[in-house]
């Protein structure tokens, strides 16, 4: 009898919310990602202009030159909403904790080749400031961006960058306590090798177009920096007995792979939308990547020596290829 109630009287009258059904084309079961994302951001009938930006509405498509017929086309291939995001990150963090515990118990982060330790302090620890800068840029996308699809992913990235900055800080604390972090901050603020990078980060804070900021941060800067630091620098570390360091930075390697899927999907879709979008994306990508490549060179030379230039050039080549796959071609290549 209980079963009969279920089949006879407990029939569902709707499968999903009407706004989701309109987007799916009919009323059918929707995913949690879809229900948590579509149309979440108000788009019309705003009451007041922001006192801090009277030229725009509260949420305003014209804060970027990118034009999308539907901003909800910029979906997240990971289908992250808050629940799936936090669960995924807590899993990744569990692995980090295990690796930290392993390395710290044996003092592995402070017992390898002292010369290389000093180098790690120089190249890795200042990145916690760079990540903090990336945190601000991602947060700015949440503030200025349009549509819950891209802004929620940017929110997750905001917290990711804070998390990464904290992992790097913990590495510094494990290497030599608080003074090591102070030393690294000195490098960030005054070592000549770091200044072009810091300048680039500070310049990225004041970029007016949030989509340009997205390209600058997640494609140009991350696209060269991550493989350089966590790939090439790390490879030398392995030769010099710093294997434990690779373990505690694994999060960043995995994360970069994952976040690139998001950035690539979004950029590819935005580029596919129109020639105008493609032109803007190519221009931003070209300018920022050029700057990043130049800014990274002194640091790369310090760590890698004379091969740095070639290594950066090859990283640049693969990044250009990646961009091209997304439909972003820098002008020089178009001309050539």
């Amino acid at each position: 009898m209980a079963l009969e109630i279920k089949t006879n009287s407990v029939r569902q009258r709707q499968q999903t919310f009407s706004n989701v059904a309109r987007r799916l084309g009919s009323d059918k079961p929707a995913s949690r990602y879809e229900e948590a994302t579509y149309d979440l951001q108000p788009d019309v009938n705003f009451h007041y202009r922001p006192t801090w930006d009277p030229a725009h509405e509260i949420f305003d498509k014209t804060r970027t030159s990118i034009i999308m017929a539907d901003w909800y086309d910029l979906k997240d291939p990971r289908q992250f909403y808050y629940g799936t995001y936090t669960i995924q990150r807590s899993r990744m963090m569990e692995a980090v904790e295990k690796n930290f515990a392993f390395a710290e118990k044996r003092g592995l982060l402070s017992t390898y080749d002292p010369e290389w330790q000093a180098m790690v302090c120089f190249y890795l620890l200042p990145l916690r400031h760079l990540e903090w800068g990336a945190n601000m840029n991602a947060c700015n996308m949440v503030d200025q961006g349009y549509g819950a699809a891209i802004t929620q992913s940017a929110m997750f990235a905001t917290m990711d960058r804070l998390g990464i900055a904290q992992i790097i800080s913990r590495i510094g604390l494990a290497m030599g306590g608080a003074s090591t972090l102070d030393q690294a901050k000195d490098y960030w603020v005054s070592a000549p090798e770091w200044q072009p990078i810091r300048q680039l980060v500070e310049d990225s804070f004041v970029v007016e177009d949030w989509f340009e900021q997205f390209v600058a941060q997640f494609l140009s800067l991350d696209g060269l920096l991550y493989p350089l630091v966590y790939g090439h620098f790390d490879a030398i570390g392995l030769e010099r007995g710093a294997g434990a360091l690779s373990m505690v930075t694994e999060f960043m390697v995995d994360w970069q792979e994952e976040i690139s899927k998001w950035a690539d999907t979004v950029l590819k879709r935005a580029a596919a939308e129109s020639d105008t979008n493609r032109t803007f994306l190519a221009q931003w990508y070209g300018e920022w990547t050029e700057r990043v490549q130049t800014a990274l060179l002194p640091l790369a030379e310090k760590v890698l020596g004379p091969t740095a230039k070639d290594i950066l050039a090859s990283l640049r080549e693969s990044l250009d290829k990646r961009a091209m796959r997304l439909g972003i071609q820098i002008e020089a290549e178009i001309a050539a």
Binding site: G83, I87, S90, M93, M159, G163
Partner: peptide
């Protein structure tokens, strides 16, 4: 962030 992810994931 490490504890935020952990606690919030448990709650979710």
């Amino acid at each position: 962030m490490d504890s935020y992810w952990k606690y919030q994931a448990e709650k979710e």
